[in-house]
């Protein structure tokens, strides 16, 4: 019985393939893609100003609303933060990634990998909570600053416009620090992977030809890690664009895209505008992915 079933499918490869794929395709294709298209569709509905009800007819009013100056400021703020977080995480990730790739001890390499993987997979919400403890007024950060006698420096920094605020936990700098902390492991892993893939004889050739370490770094190592950097930046960029929890917990009250989406679909009941807002990160990520693919990011994932 089983044998004849087996033979039946062996002779009909396409049918077998289709049956194996069907559950995942049905789930992701119907439930997930269906929902995404539903969302896209609703972004073309509009909210009736008098009744507060969603009117189901084609309209571009949500998209027009996106281009009001308040909403453009939200988009600009979020994209700006995503860029700064991405740049900073490249710089901070590099030394750790370099050590992972260049250490000659396999044990040390495994330990370092594990030390990056543990924060990556451990609880997001607990890690954000940790920063609430750290940045609280009576918390660790201020304690360290006091021990070092640097209150003056911190206060001067907090007095600066844009990056400052009443305290670090209520400032754009605080938001930035937490974003950097949370997404850093996503940058370390692909950079380390692309550094590991650089053949050692390229570095030897560079120094044999008289390249100083500095020159070798900028002219040989850096260009070869671009795919890894691009791959890591997909995560840091996309995750920052869509996050609404971190700026809500550590940050000033200026909203990010995610927070506006949450408010518009929740208390404000304006699903069309919320949907139009989610189209923004989707479009930005689509463009970003196209660029990243040209930089070779998908081979480095």
């Amino acid at each position: 019985m089983l044998r004849s079933v087996s033979t039946f499918f062996y002779q009909r490869k396409t049918l077998a393939l289709l049956l194996l794929l069907a559950p995942a395709l049905l789930w992701l294709g119907v439930i997930y893609l269906g929902s995404l298209f539903g969302l896209l569709l609703q972004s073309f509905f509009r909210l009736d100003d008098f009744t507060g009800q969603v009117v189901r007819e084609f309209s571009l009013s949500s998209y027009r609303q996106l281009f009001t100056s308040a909403n453009l400021a939200v988009i600009g703020r979020t994209v700006g933060m995503a860029l700064v977080v991405t740049l900073a995480s490249i710089i901070v990730a590099f030394p750790l990634a370099y050590s992972i790739a260049k250490t000659s001890s396999p044990t040390l390499r495994s330990i370092l990998y594990l030390l990056v993987l543990m924060p990556l997979w451990s609880s997001y919400i607990v890690r954000v909570y940790a920063w609430k403890l750290i940045l609280a007024k009576e918390g660790v950060f201020n304690w360290v600053v006091q021990q070092l006698g640097l209150e003056g420096v911190l206060n001067a920094f907090l007095a600066l416009p844009a990056v400052g605020g009443p305290s670090l936990s209520i400032s754009a700098t605080g938001t930035f620090l937490v974003f950097l902390y949370i997404w850093l492991p996503y940058m370390v892993l692909p950079i380390a992977a692309s550094l590991e893939r650089i053949p050692k004889n390229l570095l030897e050739a560079s120094s044999d030809l008289g390249g100083k370490p500095n020159l070798t770094f900028w002219r040989v190592i850096m260009p070869l890690t671009v795919p890894g950097i691009a791959a890591g930046s997909i995560f840091t960029f996309s995750l920052t664009l869509g996050d609404y929890i971190i700026p809500g917990i550590v940050g000033n009250s200026q909203p990010f895209i995610g927070q506006v989406v949450l408010i518009q679909q929740g208390t404000a009941g304006n699903i069309p505008l919320a949907a139009a807002f989610t189209v923004v990160p989707i479009v930005i990520m689509a463009v970003y992915l196209l660029v990243a693919r040209r930089l070779g990011a998908f081979d480095a994932l």
Binding site: Y32, S35, L36, G38, L39, S238, L239, L241, G242, D243, Y244, I257, G258, V261, L262, Q265, A274, A275, T278, P281, I282, M285
Partner: peptide, 9 residues
Amino acid sequence: LPGIVTGIA
């Protein structure tokens, strides 16, 4: 895609 897109969809 950002989690919020999946969520709201």
